[in-house]
Amino acid sequence: MTGATTPPVTTPPAVGRPGRAGPPGKGGRPLALLAGIGGQNLSLLGALALVLTVFGLLDDNYLGWTNLQVIAEAATITGLLAVVQTVVIICGGLDISVGSQAGLASVVSAMAFTSAGSNALAGTAAAVGVGVLVGIVNGLVIVHGRVNATIATLAGLAAYKGVAQLLSDGRAQGYVLGDPVFVFLGRGRIAGLPVMVWILILVALAVHVLLTCTDLGRNLYAIGGNDTAARLAGIAINKYLVAVYALIGAVAALAGILLTARTGSGQPVSGSEGLELKAITAAALGGCALKGGRGGVVGTLLAVALLGALENGLTVQGVNAFWQNVAQGSLLVAAVVVQQSRSGDRAVGLPG
């Protein structure tokens, strides 16, 4: 009797682990580093360097440490909202209400602070609680109400702004600059950097680790890439979506708290209006595919830095704020056009 022959064992290639771009020692490592950064991020770095150089030549103080801190502080709130906007876009959603959520949280934080006898903990806890609540409401409307995410959060944009104005009677509320906690959050420094910037760094790092190093993050990419396949794979899509919108609400509340700390009072509209457009623009510029399944925190942060540097430079040069809005809208359109050209999708209204 002839014995069975054991087939040779082959090792399947690792999924999602690209090899080095060339042999080490012969240019492979630099090429691998560039490949790891990505073409999108390299383009953003180049654009950021160009903006800094141009405005640095126009104004000697533009690249000074003081002005760079001003740019970073101004971009922090937008950065927080853009980071969580990245998460929801990756899983195929969108949240247009983040600016209104931040404004509502700002009002709640200041009013709760005052009502609790100048208690900063009460103010921050109330704001975060409200943020998580409105985030869950958004998620439930989208998931169980079967409402398109854009329409649901567009309704939230109007509703949450209205609630903030009703609570505050349309005026700034409270005064928190006498409280050491709010002063530390809004004006404190750690190792020479504003506390607000450190908060953005920590949140961005946590979200980056979530997306790149956990099964939860991989599932979010899977949901955005192909929700049907994700459902068949056993991913609880509805629970993920509600959790993502709750996360957005929590971080939007944090942004509102920082807005209160920075301005010294709860702001129902001023300071939060237009933040949703900035957050979406940063995420799109950073490489997020608006159809879902692609994007990352690093690219979003580079886009936030680019938008912040551009806005500050135009302000320093005395350019009308209306033109800044035009530039921001143009960048969003340009980002979407580039995404469409890379995706290879047929242009609307034109033959394939």
Rank of each mutant, 00 (worst) to 15 (best):
Y240C: 00
S97N: 05
A204E: 03
G287Y: 11
L33V: 15
S341I: 12
R262H: 14
A32P: 01
L307Q: 07
I248S: 14
Q324E: 13
L166Q: 05
V141C: 04
P8R: 10
G299T: 05
S168N: 00
A152D: 05
L57E: 05
V326K: 00
D179P: 01
W198L: 14
Y175H: 13
S100M: 08
Q340A: 13
R262F: 09
D345P: 00
G19K: 08
R146N: 15
D179E: 05
I257V: 15
R262A: 10
A236Y: 00
N312V: 09
L247I: 01
S270H: 10
A347F: 07
V83R: 01
A229H: 05
V83Y: 02
A14C: 03
R189D: 10
G188I: 13
A164M: 08
G139C: 08
V336G: 02
G299N: 09
V319C: 08
K239C: 03
T86D: 11
L44I: 08
L200N: 03
N312W: 11
V134I: 14
L220Y: 02
T66G: 07
V70D: 12
I248Q: 10
Q85C: 09
G174D: 02
T53L: 15
G234C: 01
L205Y: 13
Q324H: 07
G192F: 12
G295D: 08
A206I: 11
C213R: 12
S100N: 08
L63W: 01
P351D: 11
K239P: 00
N119D: 15
A284R: 01
C288Q: 01
Y221A: 02
A204T: 06
V337K: 02
P194R: 07
R189K: 12
G117E: 04
G123D: 11
A21L: 09
L285A: 04
T10G: 14
A206D: 07
V209L: 14
Y160P: 06
S115E: 15
G286E: 12
A112P: 04
A72W: 03
G56S: 09
R262T: 07
A321H: 13
G293H: 08
V326L: 10
K26M: 04
G329D: 09
V176S: 02
V163Q: 04
Q165I: 14
L331N: 03
L285E: 05
P351N: 11
G38R: 00
V107Y: 06
A158G: 12
A127V: 12
G186A: 02
L81M: 14
G103M: 06
T11I: 15
A243K: 01
D345A: 08
L211C: 06
N325G: 15
G256W: 07
S343M: 06
T300A: 13
G329K: 09
V338N: 08
L58W: 10
R20A: 14
T10P: 02
L277W: 06
L68K: 01
L58M: 14
V176A: 01
A35F: 05
S115G: 07
T76L: 01
Y240D: 00
L140I: 15
V298S: 10
I257E: 09
A172V: 09
L31G: 05
A49K: 04
G28P: 03
A334F: 13
R346N: 04
L44F: 11
I142C: 06
S330W: 00
G92K: 09
I37A: 00
A4C: 00
V51D: 04
G145D: 12
